[in-house]
Each structure stands twice: as structure tokens, then as C-alpha cells.
């Protein structure tokens, strides 16, 4: 269900116009969520696109890695876009937005500084919603094989003959 903005021939400006809210890196179109640099986009089926956009930002605020692109966070939370999980997610994100509004912002995504968003998350970190999303990310984000090289981790090594001839002891700065 993933499509890119380039295919849709939408410019960033047009997307911004049609969006309900804009986060640090996210813009929301009708029925889909996209990166502001148009590197990726995803359509939603069961949850609202702005909910998905907020969820992606929440995921990044929970486990922020500045060298890891949004597409990996999208992949990590995409599984919540199903009929059976929609209610839980919509309610959780609504609570997040309500908390942001309580602090004088239009929405969670409208909070420009990570520290403000993190304050909101801290206040709800014991909620089932937060813990579900956080717990899911531990495997949803870090167990993506495509993410591993971004951290230097090399994964499977048996098929390459292990590291016996590939630098198991190549440290040179001690």
C-alpha cells in the first residue's frame, strides 16, 4: 500500500496546504502520509492519515535516531493500521493531542520542539497505549534487517564463513 509522492506528482507545497497538521518531518495528504522531503509515503486504510502521521512522530520521539530515516519508523508502526487496532490507536493519539492542547498547542504535531513532545509522552508513559507502542517498537524498529547497517551491525555471518578471516580481531586503536 506504499506509494511515493513523486508518483503522485504532488509538490511539498501542495501537500502542506492540504494537511491538517505538519510535524517536524511529516506532512499529511488526503488518505496518505508522506515525508516532507518526499522520500516516502504511506497510505492508511483503517486509521486516519493524521493519526498515522502523529504515530510516526511519536515513534521517532520515543526512539529518536537522527540518522535513521522516517521510512523505518513507518515500517515499525504500519501494523497498527488495521481494523482491530484502529480504535486503540485513535484513542491513544487523541489523548496525545489533548495533552498537547492542554499545553497550548494545536496538536502533538504542532509542538515544534522535541522536548515539548517528550514532556507529553513522559506524562503518559505508564499508559497501556504508550507501553504498547513503545514495546512494539523494540522489535518493530530494531529488528528490521534494513536498519541494522545504519548502526554498523552486520547480522548473519555463517554464510560468509564467520569472521575468522573477516576481522574478528581487527581492532587497531588499543
Amino acid at each position: 500500500m506504499t506509494t511515493t509522492i513523486r508518483e503522485r506528482k504532488l509538490t511539498r507545497r501542495e501537500l502542506l496546504k492540504s494537511s491538517v497538521a505538519a510535524g517536524a518531518t511529516l506532512v499529511v495528504g488526503a488518505g496518505f502520509v508522506a515525508a516532507s522531503d518526499a522520500a516516502w509515503a504511506t497510505e492508511t486504510t483503517a486509521i486516519k492519515p493524521e493519526t498515522m502521521a502523529t504515530l510516526i512522530q511519536m515513534a521517532r520521539d520515543i526512539y529518536p535516531h537522527d540518522h535513521v530515516g522516517d521510512e523505518y519508523y513507518v515500517a515499525a508502526v504500519k501494523g497498527y493500521d488495521t481494523a482491530d487496532k484502529a480504535e486503540m490507536i485513535e484513542a491513544g493519539i487523541a489523548a496525545l493531542n489533548a495533552a498537547a492542547q492542554g499545553k497550548g498547542f494545536a496538536s502533538y504535531l504542532a509542538m515544534g520542539w522535541e522536548r515539548d513532545r517528550v514532556d507529553v509522552l513522559r506524562a503518559m508513559e505508564n499508559s497501556a497505549f504508550f507501553q504498547t507502542v513503545r514495546g512494539g517498537l523494540v522489535t518493530g524498529l530494531y529488528n528490521q534487517k534494513a536498519v541494522w547497517p545504519l548502526f554498523g551491525y552486520e547480522g548473519e555471518s555463517y554464510s560468509k564463513g564467520g569472521y575468522i578471516n573477516r576481522g574478528f580481531d581487527d581492532i587497531n586503536w588499543l
Partner: peptide, 17 residues
């Protein structure tokens, strides 16, 4: 530990920067 287990076990439940 590999990256996946490090994420799970370094400080279970921790999040943020």
C-alpha cells in the same frame, strides 16, 4: 549482544535520547 537484543536488554523499558 546483537543490535536487536541490545535494544531489548540494555535498559529494558527505557526510551528517549
Amino acid at each position: 549482544l546483537g543490535l536487536p537484543f541490545m535494544a531489548a536488554f540494555l535498559d529494558p523499558g527505557a526510551w528517549g535520547r
